[in-house]
Design a protein around this nucleic acid. Structure first.
Lengths: 356, 356
DNA sequence: AGTTAGCACTCTCACGACGAGAGTGTCAAG
DNA sequence: CTTGACACTCTCGTCGTGAGAGTGCTAACT
């Protein structure tokens, strides 16, 4: 019945918009359903509760508000939050403290995994929500260099540096034995020969090379090829990394007062595939993304919202960073937080990219 | 009033012991307080409920059982569990499936961190409790080799292999620029010069070398020293790694039916220092360790137990592996699980140690 | 027209009473 | 020493009740 309404923001007059905004702000602050009386008392409107009730009834008809039960106040629906975010919200400026905290954490981090880990934990702490950082597949990842370090005669650590500054390392267990000097040579060769290619491309070319005439005779080349293939094969399975931090932060939120809600939530967070799927669809979108309640499978069940943003250079987006929390959250504070963290990460990564 | 009793297991006659064992087994299975009637009905005893009540009253006086309230059955106390574990428990043989699962997971893992991560997750899955694996400080860690890989001109990955096969790698950001060949030379030099020493020892010696006459003139040596110090300094802060896996497994246990217990538990798991402290004290003990309820700060508050065991060669214990769960757990099944995982880890690590 | 006071209505929630059920302790008889 | 019997106690679910909160509606007011 409300489906034919376009979300242009035009179907609400200025007063209705003010009321909706006030209700959402107040409800986010208190967690309680908002009554006409408390709204009237807050002083923002020179109207009696009865008048406000009329406005609220209209907003309910339009699907922006709902009543938990007849004699309770109103609560925003996901549709209400959506309207708020699209048309009513005024993002807070990011506090200097927060900005400095983010900058500090990001600056201190070295390796990509550490950066992402710190990012998820800092956003979780600052937002008091669950922090998520997602780094998608490395298959399209182009390499700058590849080096091999002798761990023991048959165990080799392979260090791959991407053109975007990301460093990946894995240990492979070979059946052959290697010398230090051999590995140095192999590293130089592979770096020279394959830099700029994707892992997948490298693997395919190496496999083609095995059939090459020369490889049959040159023992050194043969060793290089098998080691290279093993190294790339071993990295490829790392299809994505998902950092979820601060799940305990939701423990104190009133929407999780009962044990079942908690249980369901933790179990949902366990299975990360769904989350990855959602974040993946966002990966093609630019700018801040907000997903509310029923708008996706994941957020629907638990009345969650996701505020997330792409990071990494726009030419090669690297992943998503954001927060997950109950639908009732301070979007006006979350939005700039997530946005800034995304920017900071992007900047950091571009710096590393320069730094060649 | 019971404190003067020695825990020799002598103060209970054979019948009392049987009753205590039966009560614990039944309570662990059901989670309910055990009544004299249900005990009589189970057929193990040819006694009436009234007689069993007498025995149970005695066990309660001795502090092995307790009643949640007057008209409830009996529940084992931590003292009761302790007696059970020390004198009554018959450990189940480890099922073949479990043994194979553990062997499989451990065999597949490569790097130490991956091994420990898998270990904590496999033990969590098999036990349906929270899995913990703890690796203590690396400061006493002696090195076999040290290599440096060029990430970018000023960022160097440092790969340290311990004599126990453990591989640690960190990226350091230097102010100087390095060439590939330089790094290879530095790696060879440091490996030759310092292998067998502890990280701490290396650092001290490097610092002493800065004051050395030669270092002032030999630019290469100077670069080596500063890089070496930075590498070691960067690794040293990693004082311990604690893997806690499967916290969600306790969600379904009846002792966490109410939200507060859940909340408290998750918050307790958040602060890992306490846990590390406890595991650290166990590090000097050989064999399986079981800590019950009030026996430690950590387990006391939440009615938890810890079943843990040292792993790593006995000459150089590497860390602790174990599970955390409610006091009411199947000790007879947990004990061999943890024990076997500890053995498997030790074996794996010794293999890697050989493999030089 | 829009606004407001008043009022009846509905729903939740905290409180207390109550009875069924479960388990115990005890005592006297076997 | 064992056991049947019985009174006692405590928990827990159910039901009823009344206070409180908030609404919708209507009629009067501006």
């Amino acid at each position: 019945m409300v489906s034919k309404l376009e979300m242009t923001g035009d179907e609400l007059d200025s007063r209705a918009r003010d009321v909706l905004r006030a209700i959402i702000l107040q409800h986010v602050a208190t967690g309680e359903p908002i009554s006409s009386r408390s709204l009237s008392k807050c002083g923002q409107f020179q109207l009696s509760p009865a008048s406000l009730r009329n406005v609220m009834a209209d907003l309910e008809d339009l699907g922006y508000l709902a009543q938990p039960h007849t004699s309770a106040g109103r609560v925003p629906t996901d549709r209400g939050y959506r309207f708020f975010i699209d048309h009513l919200m005024k993002s807070h400026a990011l506090s200097r403290r927060d900005r400095e905290t983010i900058d500090g954490e990001v600056a201190n981090a070295g390796e990509i995994e550490q950066i992402l880990h710190l990012a998820s934990s800092v956003i979780s702490k600052l937002s008091d929500q669950i922090g998520v950082v997602f780094m998608p597949t490395l298959l399209q990842f182009t390499i700058r260099s590849m080096d091999f370090v002798l761990i023991s005669e048959t165990r080799i650590m392979c260090v791959i540096v991407g053109t975007n500054g990301v460093v990946v390392n894995r240990i492979v267990d070979t059946r052959q034995t290697f010398q230090r000097e051999e590995l140095e040579k192999i590293g130089r060769y592979i770096t020279a020969e394959f830099s700029g290619m994707t892992l997948d491309g490298i693997r395919r070319r190496l496999i083609r090379m095995t059939e090459d005439e020369r490889a049959l005779h040159d023992q050194m080349l043969q060793k290089t090829i098998t080691l290279g293939i093993e190294a790339v094969n071993d990295v490829a399975p790392v299809e994505h990394e998902l950092f979820v931090e601060g799940a305990a932060s939701i423990l104190t939120k009133p929407e999780f007062a009962d044990a079942n809600a908690l249980r369901r939530t933790f179990l949902a967070l366990q299975e990360k595939e769904k989350l990855i799927e959602i974040l993946n669809t966002f990966l093609s979108e630019d700018g801040l993304q907000i997903l509310i309640g029923s708008e996706s499978d994941f957020t629907q069940v638990h009345n969650f919202s996701i505020v997330a943003r792409r990071y990494g250079s726009s030419s090669a987006p690297l992943g998503m960073v954001g927060i997950i929390g109950p639908m009732r959250m301070e979007y006006a504070r979350m939005a700039p937080l997530v946005d800034y963290l995304g920017l900071a990460l992007t900047r950091k990564i571009e710096e590393q990219e320069q730094d060649r």
